[in-house]
């Protein structure tokens, strides 16, 4: 297969405070400028700049051949990107809301995820599928789901789920450079509520070592979480420390796959207690995988039950009071963590 060589970037890099959504845009911009094979495809990503502004200005800067408005055809967009990726391109597909990815599921699961394997390594699908997920923005049941557990179950996919702007920037650039298909789960709640200092002059390291991050060190219990819930857990842990003197160690997984089991095991060995917090529905959610992995391999380290905190088994309702009864709130997380700490 033929590859276009990397071109010299003309971007001026500076250290900037960027919001989560701006970090998405900055990462896309950096990769569009660096590699001609990178294209951005999605509904309203062009003139409009994406419904969450994550592609704002990119079409103007890179042209309609690189940043392409698509029809409302998720399945064809995904399949098209799989084909283009097989021919050497590096497409980044935006699915407007993660809830819409069901329409593209076949091409992601039966195509992108399997092609390297079933072609015996002859084909690569360097594809990124970005999707804003989760509740908290009052979009209602078909626009608020957190479905990363489904993708984490599929061999062949990398599942990235950043919780902060700095990670968004690095992880998205790495995802675009990955030769494996990456499902990139963004938090639309955090788009304009989370920001960080981003050094755009630092190039992402390759190959990527997908590791978890210790957000806060503690000795009483380990909390494994990812995405939007990281912020909630941090706040709950801070309160618990102030009010009860409980020291939580918080691990932000960043990637559901590859899963950094080492980071989890090391932490549980220190704290002897584990809670998993995620926004995805608790039953059959990824917290169950973490819990069973720890039960299987770290049982001797445990000194208490493993606690899972996830969303109730219900669609995400519109009314705030109902949503708060379904999605884990800071109060609920605090209560459950306190119970575990005092077990």
């Amino acid at each position: 297969m033929h590859f276009v060589t990397y071109t010299q970037s003309t971007l001026v890099y500076v250290m900037t405070e960027l919001k989560y959504a701006e970090a998405v845009r900055a990462a896309l911009r950096a990769e569009l400028a660096t590699d001609e094979r990178v294209v951005v495809l999605g509904q309203e990503v062009g003139a409009l700049g994406g419904v969450f502004t994550t592609t704002k200005g990119l079409q103007r800067e890179f042209g309609p051949e690189r940043v392409l408005d698509t029809p409302i055809s998720e399945a064809a967009i995904a399949g098209w990107a799989v084909g283009a990726a097989m021919a050497g391109m590096r497409p980044v597909v935006e699915i407007m809301f993660m809830d819409f990815v069901m329409l593209a599921m076949d091409q992601i699961v039966n195509g992108a995820a399997k092609l390297r394997y079933m072609s015996n390594g002859q084909l690569s699908v360097p594809l990124v599928v970005r999707m804003p997920a989760g509740a908290g923005t009052r979009h209602g049941p078909q626009h608020s789901q957190q479905l990363e557990s489904w993708f984490a179950h599929v061999p062949g996919l990398i599942v990235a789920m950043p919780s902060r702007a700095v990670d968004v920037y690095t992880m998205l650039r790495q995802a675009i450079r990955s030769d494996d298909p990456v499902v990139f789960v963004e938090s639309k709640y955090l788009y304009f509520r989370e920001s960080g200092e981003i050094d755009e002059s630092v190039l992402p390291e390759l190959p990527v070592t997908q590791t978890a991050r210790v957000v806060r060190e503690g000795t009483d219990l380990t909390v494994v979480t990812a995405g939007r819930m990281v912020q909630r857990v941090v706040e709950a842990a801070r309160d618990l420390h102030e009010s009860d003197g409980i020291a939580c160690e918080i691990i932000d997984l960043r990637y559901l796959w590859p899963l950094d089991t080492g980071a989890i095991a090391r932490s549980v060995a220190r704290t002897s207690k584990l809670a998993v917090v995620h926004e995805a529905v608790q039953t059959f959610g990824w917290g169950g995988e973490i819990a069973s992995w720890v039960a299987e391999y770290c049982l001797a380290d445990l000194d208490g039950p493993i606690v899972r905190i996830g969303s109730q088994r219900a669609p995400v309702p519109f009314a705030e009071v109902l949503e708060n009864a379904v999605v884990p709130t800071e109060a609920l997380i605090k209560e459950k963590l306190r119970e575990l700490a005092t077990y």
């Binding site: 033929h2 590859f3 276009v4 001609e36 094979r37 294209v39 051949e65 399945a75 064809a76 995904a78 399949g79 098209w80 990107a81 799989v82 084909g83 283009a84 990726a85 097989m86 021919a87 050497g88 391109m89 497409p91 076949d106 091409q107 039966n110 195509g111």
Partner: peptide
């Protein structure tokens, strides 16, 4: 399922000249 593969691949190849 193969329809967008061929169409996308042909388009992608053209993008690369």
């Amino acid at each position: 399922g193969g329809m967008p593969w061929a169409a996308g691949a042909a388009w992608g190849a053209r993008q690369q000249g």
